[in-house]
Design a protein around this nucleic acid. Structure first.
Length: 573
DNA sequence: GCCGTTTTCGGCCCGACTGTTTTCAGTCG
């Protein structure tokens, strides 16, 4: 899909233009990048069908950018982009991914210190060269070093939300190869891990050569590391490695088990196998030299006296013990949710109208959708004040009369201020169906203050859900510091729901915290934080986190009937 | 460069915060 590649280029162009201090164009390119990121149909298909006119019809894409896209489809290059790159030969995408580094600073860094990439910047910071630049000091120098450190720890990894679609596309392609009997995805993608280091494909095939040829000649392949009879490793253009293994049928289940991991889970599993007099490896479960199980993954667990467990749970944090006692939880199922509880519209920073979001939700089979636009202290999003919220409520009433098959609920993503107060008056909050509240600033407060701040918001009688409770941004920003025991205790007491945010950049709460919160009896909402109709489909990423946290249907409020949910939330306290 | 229920030209989300300064530039979302 070209959309993602183009989005990256346009985003880079917006940064380059901003460095050149060109007015307004940066925003135009940035908007186009966002639209393409969320666009469901491949621009190539649109172009094939409707030409330049079709491209022009894409929101945020006009004549100029349509021509850029055409350029890219035809030649794989964009002239304007290459012209900019030539003038400013700097890795702006890499540098700007460091928290606290933006286009202006990148420009100064290049002009004064000839810094072109992250490693240059790191060296300069270590030498204490940054502090002497205009408007810089020791603190900012240290902040940049910390930002680089953080980036490094997540280096070479990719968000699940980016990696999974690529993996599924390649899997589909492998399955179509004639001699392929079966093809499966293993590794961290199968476990729905938050970030992905590489993609693992396992295949049974009569003619391995044909499969390997298909795999290595895919357009996505940038570099072939090695290619043999049973194993091939490549680097994809998207910036991630992919491994393909061809396996004999009798070992397929064992291989899937082995390559799914996690490593810790497998070590524990092998130990338990040894204890019971078996040997377990990627080719099968053996008693002496005799193959006891191998074709079917479930069979391997069964022979070891264990219930089969879902890959999301394989973290070696008690799942093997629970499987042995037949006490694994009955996990919430994919597709079990009845509605989305966090969505933004074009009333603030979303791309689509309330009606468009509701239509898509209906198409997905949802019973309801909660509209939760930002509030006024998030000014850059056009956050709603009381008046605007009241107007939006009227609009929702109008739409509910007009539409059938979906209920639009009135909500908001109310901003939690530094002191834990909210930026919308109680009298307006009380008129909303469901109120979400979340933190968008002061991420670095000490644990004690941050905890007190969040607890104050949780204790507000109007707040039903805390959205993305830790505020983390995967591979970019750390979670805020919280005393989770304290937070979970108060959330339970006040019947305040914690969100499992399904946005691939957030996944917040994560599985580990879900499991901990669940022990306190906290209930959860799984919601997408969708800013466009296409993002409403993120729900599965949240469900995966819930499953890793051992959550059942009973723990997830939007898996319940709407009436049950509403009764539960009525917390006149 | 994009966009239009005031506009095909003339606008273009803007407030809070931080670390630098001693009035503000840069970044964030």
């Amino acid at each position: 899909m070209l959309n993602q590649e183009l989005a990256k280029i346009f985003f880079e162009m917006s940064l380059l233009l901003e460095m050149k201090e060109v007015a307004f164009k940066p925003r135009a390119y940035e908007n186009a990048a966002h639209t393409l990121e969320a666009l469901e149909e491949d621009v190539k298909d649109i172009y094939k069908r409707e030409g330049l006119k079709g491209l022009d019809a894409i929101p945020a894409v006009g004549k100029g950018i349509a021509r850029d896209i055409e350029d890219f489809i035809r030649t794989g290059r964009i002239k304007e982009y290459e012209r900019l790159k030539k003038k400013i030969p700097v890795d702006v995408a890499g540098l700007s991914s460091i928290e606290g580094v933006g286009p202006k600073l990148i420009k100064t860094l290049y002009n004064t210190l000839k810094i072109r990439k992250v490693s240059d910047l790191e060296r300069a910071a270590h030498k204490g060269k940054l502090r002497d630049l205009p408007r810089m000091g020791e603190k900012l120098e240290a902040k940049i070093l910390k930002g680089i450190e953080f980036l490094k720890t997540s280096h070479g990894r990719m968000l699940l939300g980016e990696a999974r679609p690529i993996a599924l596309m390649i899997l589909g392609r492998l399955k179509k190869v004639k001699s392929v009997e079966d093809a499966k995805l293993a590794g961290s993608v199968r476990r729905w891990q938050e970030t992905i280091g590489d993609l693992d494909f396992l295949v049974i095939a009569e003619n391995p050569k044909e499969v390997i040829r298909t795999f290595t000649s895919m357009p996505e392949v940038a570099h072939i590391y090695s290619t043999g009879k049973t194993k091939t490793m490549v680097r994809l253009r998207a910036g991630i490695d992919a491994d393909l293994r061809i396996l004999p049928k009798e070992s397929f289940g064992a291989a899937i088990q082995y390559f799914t991991g996690s490593k810790d889970h497998n070590v524990a599993l092998r130990k338990s196998a040894i204890k019971k007099g078996f040997k377990l490896n990627e080719y099968g479960l053996y008693r002496g030299k005799k193959l006891v199980a191998g074709i079917d993954e479930k069979d391997i667990y069964k022979k070891l006296g264990l219930d089969w467990m879902s890959p999301e749970m394989r973290t070696n944090t008690g799942e093997i013990e629970a499987a042995q006692k037949h006490k694994l939880p009955n996990l919430i199922e994919y597709g079990a949710l009845k509605g989305d509880l966090q969505t933004q519209t074009n009333w603030t920073d979303g791309a689509n109208s309330i009606e468009e979001m509701a239509m898509e939700a209906k198409k997905m089979g949802h019973e309801y959708i909660l509209i939760t636009d930002h509030t006024k202290s998030l000014a850059m999003t056009g956050g709603a004040d009381e008046k605007k919220l009241l107007r939006q409520m009227k609009e929702i009433d109008r739409l509910n009369k007009k539409m059938s098959g979906i209920m639009i609920l009135k909500g908001a993503e109310v901003n939690i201020m530094k002191d834990g107060s909210l930026d919308i008056s109680d009298s307006v909050l009380s008129q909303l169906d469901i109120v979400g509240a979340s933190i968008h600033s002061h991420f670095t407060m000490p644990e004690k203050e941050q905890t007190a701040r969040l607890i104050r918001a949780i204790e507000n009688p109007h707040v039903d859900i805390i959205f993305h409770p830790t505020g983390r941004s995967l591979m970019k920003r750390e979670p805020i510091r919280l005393d989770f025991d304290g937070v979970f205790r108060v959330a339970k007491k006040t019947r305040t729901i914690l969100e499992i945010n399904a946005h691939p950049r957030r996944l917040d709460l994560n599985g580990e915290l879900v499991r901990k919160a669940k022990e306190y009896g906290v209930k959860f909402a799984i919601s997408t934080d969708a800013h466009a109709v296409s993002e409403l489909h993120y729900l599965d990423y949240g469900i995966a986190q819930a499953r890793r946290g051992w959550a059942t249907k009973n723990d997830i409020i939007n898996a319940w009937p709407l009436t049950t949910l509403k009764t539960f939330l009525k917390k006149e306290r």
